[in-house]
Nucleic acid binder design. Structure first.
Length: 631
RNA sequence: GGGCAUGUGGCGCAACUUGGAUAGCGCACUUGGCUUCGGACCAAGUGGUUGCGGGUUCAAAUCCCGUCAUGCCCA
């Protein structure tokens, strides 16, 4: 069992309020009625409070104050709660400082790097899909946001006891691949740089040609047709090109310390005939049908809007009568392909995929597998929950897919099919278009590679001036860690749905609400513990006062509840808020309360420092940020 | 035309799902703090009718209705 100090003290408070109300008024409230009324008062009135008396006022025909006063006076203190009082109709509790501090410190000391973990995932399998960048270009800063989010979500789910598979979907069959292959054959240029970068630039060039010579469009369409024949020479060439591009993309991923378990290729999905199986299922269940000849949908396979509306009212007001799944020319839409793929994820239809190792050993010491025409069988997929990190523009498609899941009778899967819709990243008001090449900048591109290089250069300049670091050989490692923390934090601190306007100025700022300032807190705490010759003895909370020290203890006690919440709501920005607050609280504590020079309080304050360091480290690792000892 | 998201001090954001006491944080600005545990830090301060209008409630940034603006999506 993992400990959760905040949840424990809340439970005690609910219990005593419940007992007091029953004793005073003879009413037995349920825990679920009380628990939403709890909150933490902002000022220093108390440590925990409930507003339940406002709700009871009408029923009891008494003022909230009267009720609260009665409840407070009847309430019996518990192990963790020392006093209960009334103010303005609220019932307020103060914690037993020593008992609660001991609880928190014990929890951190005994669970260490597992402090904050929970069991809500019950070892269920979940597949997280990200960043799924087309294999004909490099990651741009928007893809970095996606990857960083997906990585954090995976870490958080895993910390909540889900068995997480990190999956990257690779669309090697779209029109964009036909165009890149056309470029490869016709543009007589040799790769002279990192392959994804080179391919991305070439793709922009192909699109310039297309704009100038619209008749080329026909050639592209022919190329696309031949790609879909998996035995064609074009198909073989495009796979080779895409694999080479993916190796380059994986270099970027690895530089960002982001790793996957499996890559799934669209061409292998085609080979496995997942689409046919999915369409058969949808037809058999009466969800999908042939459009009637009298409608404009003639010749295509559709799902009637009225059917979708039965599951999700969003589809109700739409003028359109149906959603096309397979066009009259036989081309499957993205929805069709995605529907099929996700039926596989949930183990509803079989693919019989074969896998090979794409990378034998990644930096996290695990292999990266890829689907393939031959190879071994492995148990990927077959999950209880699927999380897709896809930008908000695809919300509609994802919703249609979810509705179809429910309509074919898999409501449970529909509920567990989660689209984490994040806002796009723009540069000075314009979107990043791979086609138009707006990701290419002047001197430095808006790519993952250039972003990391630039931020690292800036970090290096600062690090190399530090007097705290005597070992010059570690500059490189530290600058890298600082840069990664800055970038990851910058993308994670915004709520997922917000759009982000990227600017170099912001990316290169390491102060304030930033990753480096959290790393700083960690490094500072580490150094203080070393200097203070801290030994991990059993907690001695007697010297804790009602000041900055106890504020820290309370904040640390909240961490496990926070992790659960973030795991259920997919909002890593709550963790960035949390670590900023932890940093700030430690900063205040550090100024006001001498640690090493703390006299009798020294040992206690070292213990608090150790708990801050541990919790900060755990929280940062969830975000995909590796803390460092010196900076 | 329909749908979704967003709108919070000068700027960038958080809190909204689950209503609660004085709306938090960073940047910028003003003032102060390194002979003293790591100043990527801290203290004090200026700045808000939470887009607008109505409603529900003892209580609304939060819920409901309407409206405006911006972005995205659907054919």
């Amino acid at each position: 069992m993992h400990s959760n100090p905040a949840a424990q003290v809340r439970a005690e408070f609910i219990g005593l309020v419940k007992a007091s109300i029953k004793g005073s008024f003879g009413i037995d409230l349920r825990e679920e009625e009380l628990s939403p009324t709890l909150s933490t008062p902002k000022n220093e009135i108390a440590d925990l409070s409930t507003s339940i008396c406002f709700r009871l006022a009408k029923e009891f025909k008494k003022s909230p104050r009267e009720i609260a006063q009665r409840v407070a006076s009847e309430a019996r203190p518990t192990k963790l709660i020392l006093t209960i009082s009334e103010l303005n109709g609220y019932v307020n509790a103060t914690f037993d400082r020593v008992a609660y501090s001991r609880l928190v410190m014990d929890a951190v000391n005994s669970e260490k790097e597992r402090y904050g973990a929970s069991e809500i995932g019950k070892q269920e399998k979940v597949i997280v899909e990200f960043p799924s960048v087309n294999p004909n270009k490099p990651w741009h800063v928007g893809h970095v946001r996606n990857a960083v989010l997906g990585n954090a979500i995976s870490n958080i789910l895993s910390f909540n006891s889900y068995l997480v598979e990190r999956e990257d979907y690779i669309d090697d069959l779209g029109l964009q691949m036909a165009e890149s292959l056309w470029g490869l054959k016709n543009l007589d240029a040799k790769p002279d740089k990192k392959y994804d970068q080179w391919l991305g630039e070439q793709y922009v060039e192909v699109n310039k040609r297309l704009a100038a010579q619209p008749d080329l469009k026909h050639e592209m369409d022919l190329m696309l047709k031949s790609l879909e024949d998996l035995n064609s020479e074009e198909s073989r060439m495009v796979r080779e090109m895409a694999q080479r591009c993916m190796l380059a993309q994986r270099e970027t991923a690895s530089a960002y310390q982001i790793y996957h378990d499996v890559m799934i290729w669209e061409s292998d999905i085609l080979r496995a005939k997942l689409l046919e199986k999915a369409l058969e299922l949808a037809t058999r269940k009466g969800v999908m049908e042939k459009a009637s000849d009298e409608t404009k949908y003639k010749g295509s396979l559709i799902v009637k809007m009225g059917r979708l509306a039965r599951y999700d009212k969003e589809f109700a007001g739409n003028e359109e009568e149906a959603k096309i799944i397979v066009r009259s020319n036989g081309a499957a839409t993205y929805i069709a392909k995605d529907f099929a793929f996700h039926l596989w994820k949930f183990g509803i239809i079989e693919a019989g995929f074969r896998y090979q190792k794409f990378i034998e050993k990644q930096q996290n010491s695990k292999s990266l597998y890829t689907t393939s025409s031959s190879g071994e069988e492995r148990n990927f997929g077959n999950v209880k929950k699927a999380v897709n990190i896809i930008d908000a523009s695809q919300k509609y498609e994802q919703q249609v897919m979810r509705a179809m899941f429910a309509l074919v009778g898999h409501e449970e899967a529909a509920k567990n099919l989660i689209h984490l819709a994040y806002g796009r990243v723009t540069v000075a008001g314009t979107g990043l278009s791979t086609r138009k090449g707006t990701w290419m900048g002047d001197g430095k591109n808006y790519t993952g590679d250039d972003l990391l290089r630039e931020v690292k250069d800036a970090a290096y300049k600062i690090v190399s001036q530090s007097e705290k670091i005597t070992d010059k050989s570690s500059f490189e490692m530290i600058a890298n860690a600082v840069a990664l923390s800055a970038i990851k934090f910058e993308f994670l601190k915004f709520a997922p749905e917000t759009e982000i306007t990227f600017s170099w100025e912001k990316a290169l700022n390491f102060e304030g609400d930033s990753g480096p300032s959290c790393l700083y807190t960690y490094a500072r705490a580490t150094r203080v513990l070393e200097k203070g010759e801290y030994k991990n003895r059993s907690p001695d909370p007697k010297a804790i006062s009602r000041g900055e020290d106890f504020e820290i203890i309370k904040h640390i006690g909240e961490f496990p509840s926070l992790v659960e919440k973030v795991g259920e709501e997919y909002r890593p920005n709550l963790i960035t808020d949390y670590v900023i607050m932890l940093s700030s609280l430690f900063g205040k504590f550090y100024e006001k309360m001498p640690i090493i020079n703390g006299g009798d309080a020294k040992e206690t304050r070292l213990q608090i420092t150790s708990c801050v360091r541990q919790t900060m480290g755990n929280a940062l690792r969830l975000l995909g940020i590796e803390p460092i000892e010196r900076m």
